[in-house]
Structure formats: structure tokens, C-alpha cells
Design a protein around this nucleic acid. Structure first.
Lengths: 349, 349
DNA sequence: AAATCTCATGCAAGCGCTTACATTTTCAAT
DNA sequence: ATTGAAAATGTAAGCGCTTGCATGAGATTT
């Protein structure tokens, strides 16, 4: 290799190993390992000597080696559909915080709302040593569930709730929550409703929310088939475009646009503005999630407050108990409540 | 262990290994490994047989073992100061996308703006096998730099630029960018300026931005010592509180509040509104970053557009070249340009 | 004083993979 | 056919760590 002169080469001088520490402290590697993992097994004298060396040479255990030998990593994987908007941010933050309390580290991956990606990410996270997983929503190919089963990986589903769910979950009932909001909407006299939602085929949360609206609508005898449903991925841009379409193409303009989440609703707000429509005077708009955005826009969004933080925290607790093989309630349902703000008003004539 | 009956126990049946694949395909583990890592070394016939087995039993290589044996992971670590707001989101997204193109995976950690945490995270990411790191800003204890040096870890600093930087960087000049904005501000006739910024002691970007404002101010002969500087961590809440303080406590109210970033500026906007001040009629407000938020609020924020995506992309390219030991320009400076929108107007009398 | 028990520590076997080197196979050229 | 180089594959030595078991030194009991 001497001929390689002149080639800019980053010399990776490998980091100190357990062996180095052991040698310098005059003990065996086993003892060093114990000092780090179960200190009470080592007599104080030795322990201090070892830890001193650790600090001195800046030793950090090699994660891969540790995982390989111990067959656990204290790492939890989470696969969320998207990182692009803030929908999952708050919940995940709480999830992470709570995990930290229990000595776990979080590894996040994103599936871009694509079930096939999600399966790949599951594999990847497991290969990286995740001891357990957090997944969003119930909807995924049975092959994914089979895989998890076969591997015996503990996992928790979140952001959704189903009474009859066969898997552990911590979430809220998207349908009931959205139905509650829709009931308020019809109470305001709205009869012409339009829906702007994320594509429902791979998103059970979105599907349930739409179902909730339709339920409320049929309760008061509205013609469900007349309700226009526009599907588009979550983004402000898309929300604006879809709303624009709904408003300009309908022969009879809807009096309210109910959006699948706040991000779409902000887009709807923008579309209304660009069409010169006053919200809520000419048009009402509702969101879902109650993320920070909802209170930043003008008018503030009427929406459904999802207890993201609580959900993240409870999910972390569930996983942590699961790994300790403690008893964990199969299904946990949190409450999401309607928040009335400015963007919803009486139906325009 | 038979006594453990009745105890809910997750049976972790370990996943298939290289050995399993090798056995089932009737080849050696070496061949399987080669099929996966350098397929061209294996004759097509064998390769197909092996890959068929891989697919069939759902084999995924154990990351830790691979890292241990190969001493590289194709994983890049990034340590950003915060995930709480969207400041770094867009840049990181682009960073990740570009890394993906080059076959690398991204691992993100957050330092909460605390240098000591950052050092810990550096260690953690390296222990997890990161081949290289992305760091934000230049400011960190020399011990951190020494550590990186000692380990020979390639890294790139981003979100900042310094001509004389001794380390590789891809960023923009925070001072010059903010100075450009401040010049526009004084052109609008503002003489009483207040600054709301993140704490400068551990944040060189914030420090440089403040310096830029002061430069522009002194260029036109304003009394720099009269400029009130309020430091508070980035958040809408904090921005509102700080602005509230600035506006209500000053004997002579400033005509413009220049904020360290858009998040603080949105808070400032809210404070102004709560005090019944019209923006920009009674008070002008400016931000920095040009994140999505800037165009959502009303009035839209005058700000500095930071080329986040481009920065992320270039940083990824730099790191990828670095790992291929290709030549990489030491310092790369992108342009951040002022964006005039509604929140800046002529100075109120 | 011998026997027994505790506790701290060491020894050494892997964990699942990559890769240098050794061996076998293939195939073109003689 | 024979040869030899090149290509394909196998062998086995680790990578850095954890942990079951063995060891030995004290402490405690008889």
C-alpha cells in the first residue's frame, strides 16, 4: 500500500476498545464490561479504577458489537408515514422523552405513506437492532404482520384505535372524533359539505375520519352521495389546490370544507383567500390534529385536538412495559376533543 | 425456565442469518456475503439461487455484525441543535435525499443547543457506526474538535460560513445575510431597532446575525449601544414574550423588531397583535430563514431566504466525496438573499 | 482447623458478518 | 490432451462485546 502516497487518505485510527481499557486498568474485559453494565457486581475499588481509565481515554462501547453479543440494544424503532409536516412531531417528541426516562433510544424512519416502504423500514430497523417498534395505524399488508409475528418483535400501533384490534395499540378513535366535529358543523346549519382528505386507500386514519363525517351527515338526513370527496396528499399546496378545485368546479358551492388535517385546512384557507372568499363568512373550513399551525393562521382553525403528547407518552410506556414483559392493556383509547375556533361559522346562505 | 408458565413472554425467535442462507443455497457464507455486497464477483447462476433463498426466508443482514466486520456502515450522522421547530427540517430532508442517492443512510440526533450534549451525541453516533458527521455551526469546545481529529472522523460543518474556517464547511454567511436585511431596514427609515435573538453564547449563527445588524446600523451612524438585544430560545412563545417585553418596557418604542429567525418573528407578530399594534403600520418585524411559516402568517414575513435545500444537498455531496477520498473544496459559501414581504414597512413616526 | 459458602474476577465461547488468502473450477490457447 | 491464467468459491480469522461457568480469596460456620 506504500504506493498510495499522494492520495489524500483519511486515517481512521480506530477508537479504544474494551481490551484497551482492560489492559490499562489491569483487569479482564469481563470486568470492564460489568463495570459498564452492572456496576453493582464489581467492587468499588476496581470499578473506580476502570471508570477512570474509561474517562481518560474517552472510551465508548461499540454499539454493533454490543448488540451482537447482548442481542438487545435498548433501541426502539418508530416508523412514521412522513416527516415533511409537523403532524407527528409533537407525539414523537413525547414518545422519545418518555423512552429516554426508561433508558431507551429512539430510531425514526419514514415510510412516505407507502406500505412497501414500511415493510422495508421494518426490516431495516430490526437489522439495526431495534428491540421493539412503534407503527402508525393498523393498515398494512398481512405479510408485514406475519413478519413481525415470526420474528417475535414487540410492537405497538398508535394514532388509531379499534375496539376489536388484534394488536396492541395506543390511540384515539378517528371516526368518532371527526364525527363529533361534523356534528358541530351540521349544527351550524351546513348542508353542502365538501371533504378534502389524504388518499384513503393506504391510510386508515384518513378513511375513518371521512367515515365519521359521512355518519354525522346521514344522521341529519343529508345526501351522502352529494358530498364531494377530494383526495390529495397532506401538504399546504395540495390542500389549496384541492379546495380550489372543489370551490370552482361545483355548481353549488359547498358552505364548508372539512379537511382531513390542519395542513390541508391551511391550504384550504389560502385557496379561499385567493378566491376572495371570507372565512367563515362565505365559507367555513375545519381541520384535524390541532397542531401549532392551527392557531397561527388567520382565522384560527376549528379543529379536533389530538392528545399527541399524551399518546406518545403512553405508547412509550406500553412499549417499555412490553419489553419488561409486564402486563400491558391491549388497547388504549385516548380522547380527542373538538376545538371551536374562528374558521367555522354559520352556513352562508 | 419451565416454571415461568403463565408469564406473558415474547418469544424472540432470532432472525435468519447468513449461515442459514448459505446452508439452504448450498454455498459458503462468503459467497452469500459477496452476492449481497459485490454481486459481480459471483456467477449469475449461483447468485440467483442465493438471492432466491434470501427472498424466500426474508433474510436481512444484521447491521451490527456487518459494521463490526466491515468497519463501515454507510451511515452518516447529523447532529442538529433542535428538532422542535422546522428550522432544520428542509435542509435535513434534502441532505437525506442526496445521501440516499449515494447509498448512505442518515442518522439524526439533537443536541438541544447544548455543547456538552453535542459531544455526547458525537460519541453515540460514532459508536453506532456513523462513517462521517454533519455538524451545525462552528462553535464547539476544542475538546470536541480534538476528539474528531483523534478518531479521524470525516465531518462537515453546515449552516454557517467563515472564510478562514479550518474545517470543511458548506453554509452561508449569517452576518452578511443579516446585514443585507438590516440595510434594507434602515433604508426604510428605521432608527429605533430592537433585536430578538437566540442566546448568542453557544450559537455562532445567532451571534453573527446580530453582528450583521449592528454593522448595518453603525454604517448609517445609529447609536449601537441604544439597540436593545433580547435573547431567548427559538420558539413562538418566547418570541412573543421577548417582543412584548421590548415593546412595553422601552421608553421610546422601537419602530422595528428584527428577529433572529422566523419562529421568533411569528411570536413577535403575535405580540404586536396582542398589543393592538398594526404591522407594518405601527411596527415592522423581520425574520430569518424563510421557512414555510413565513408565508403562512399574516402579514407575510420579510426575511432572509436561506437556501436550505441546496445547503443540505451540497453538504451531502461533500460528505460523500470525502468518504471516497475525493477532493472536496474546503469551504463552500451559498447565497442567502433578502425577501421583502409585508411585515416590513416605512418607519412609523 | 477444616469445611462451607460468598463474592469478585477471569476465562473463553460465541454473536453474525466481511475479507485475505487458499483452493478449485473454467476455459482459452497451445 | 495439456497447460496456465483467470474466475469462482471456500476456509477461517477476526471485528468488539457479553455472559455462563470456573476459579480463587476471604468470610463464616462447625
Amino acid at each position: 500500500m506504500a504506493e498510495r502516497k499522494g492520495r489524500a487518505r483519511t486515517t481512521i485510527q480506530s477508537s479504544p476498545t474494551l481490551d484497551d481499557v482492560a489492559r490499562l486498568a489491569g483487569v479482564s474485559t469481563a470486568t470492564v464490561s460489568r463495570c459498564l453494565n452492572s456496576p453493582q457486581q464489581v467492587v468499588e475499588d476496581t470499578r473506580e479504577r476502570v471508570l477512570a481509565v474509561v474517562r481518560e481515554i474517552g472510551y465508548a462501547p461499540n454499539f454493533g458489537a454490543r448488540a451482537l453479543a447482548a442481542k438487545r440494544t435498548n433501541t426502539i424503532g418508530a416508523i412514521i408515514p412522513t416527516m415533511e409536516n409537523a403532524i407527528f412531531a409533537r407525539g414523537l417528541q413525547a414518545f422519545q422523552e418518555e423512552l429516554g426516562q426508561h433508558g431507551f433510544t429512539l430510531l425514526v424512519a419514514s415510510s412516505s405513506y407507502r406500505p412497501d416502504y414500511e415493510e422495508e423500514q421494518i426490516r431495516t430497523l430490526l437489522a439495526r437492532g431495534a428491540d421493539a417498534l412503534l407503527l402508525i395505524g393498523f393498515h398494512r399488508p398481512s405479510s408485514a404482520y406475519a413478519f413481525l409475528e415470526r420474528r417475535g418483535v414487540p410492537f405497538v400501533v398508535s394514532w388509531a384505535y379499534r375496539q376489536d384490534a388484534q394488536v396492541r395499540s395506543v390511540g384515539f378513535d378517528n371516526r368518532i372524533a371527526m364525527r363529533a366535529l361534523a356534528r358541530r358543523v351540521v349544527e351550524f346549519g351546513h348542508k353542502r359539505i365538501a371533504i378534502v382528505t389524504a388518499p384513503c386507500d393506504v391510510n386508515d386514519r384518513a378513511r375513518e375520519r371521512v367515515a365519521g363525517i359521512l355518519e354525522a351527515a346521514s344522521e341529519v338526513g343529508l345526501d351522502i352521495d352529494a358530498i364531494r370527496i377530494e383526495e390529495t396528499p397532506y401538504s399546504i399546496e395540495n390542500g389549496a389546490a384541492a379546495t380550489h378545485a372543489v370551490l370552482s368546479e361545483s355548481e353549488q358551492r359547498p358552505t364548508v370544507v372539512m379537511c382531513g388535517n390542519d395542513v390541508l385546512a391551511v391550504g384550504a384557507l389560502r385557496a379561499a383567500k385567493s378566491l376572495g372568499l371570507h372565512v367563515p363568512g362565505d365559507l367555513s373550513i375545519t381541520g384535524f390534529d390541532d397542531i401549532e399551525l392551527a392557531q397561527i393562521v388567520e382565522p384560527c382553525l376549528t379543529t379536533v385536538h389530538v392528545p399527541h403528547r399524551e399518546m406518545g407518552r403512553q405508547a412509550a410506556k406500553a412499549i417499555s412495559s412490553l419489553l419488561r414483559t409486564e402486563d400491558v392493556p391491549q388497547n388504549q383509547c385516548l380522547e380527542a376533543r373538538v376545538v371551536l375556533r374562528e374558521s367555522l361559522g354559520p352556513a352562508a346562505s
